[in-house]
């Protein structure tokens, strides 16, 4: 299954969860937030939210700014 994580194509096993997608980038679970197709997925739902083919996953954190 192909999904996009932060703009880059990734191959994940069919039925992979948001947690698995996040772990492609980081082991951190705090200070990080996820949107799938422009909808926020709360941290408590990462393990139970399955991704689908062509989903767009955005993994954000705080950086210097403003």
């Amino acid at each position: 299954m192909n999904v996009t994580i932060n703009g880059t194509a990734h191959e994940l096993p069919s039925g992979a969860t948001v947690s698995q997608a996040v772990r492609k980038l980081t082991e951190a679970t705090s200070g990080v937030a996820v949107a799938v197709n422009d909808e926020v997925v709360s941290r408590g739902a990462w393990d139970s939210t399955a991704l689908a083919e062509a989903d767009r996953v955005e993994v954000l954190t705080a950086v210097q700014g403003g």
């Binding site: 980081t26 993994v59 954000l60 403003g66």
Partner: peptide, 30 residues
């Protein structure tokens, strides 16, 4: 103190959040 939200960069070292937490400064995301 304000911070911005951006795509997570796996190669980034250190975090502005650690600085704010250490100094007890409330974070204001923009």
């Amino acid at each position: 103190t304000t911070v911005a939200m951006r795509r997570l960069d796996p190669s980034a070292r250190g975090s502005v959040l650690d600085v704010l937490r250490t100094r007890g400064i409330k974070v204001l995301p923009n």
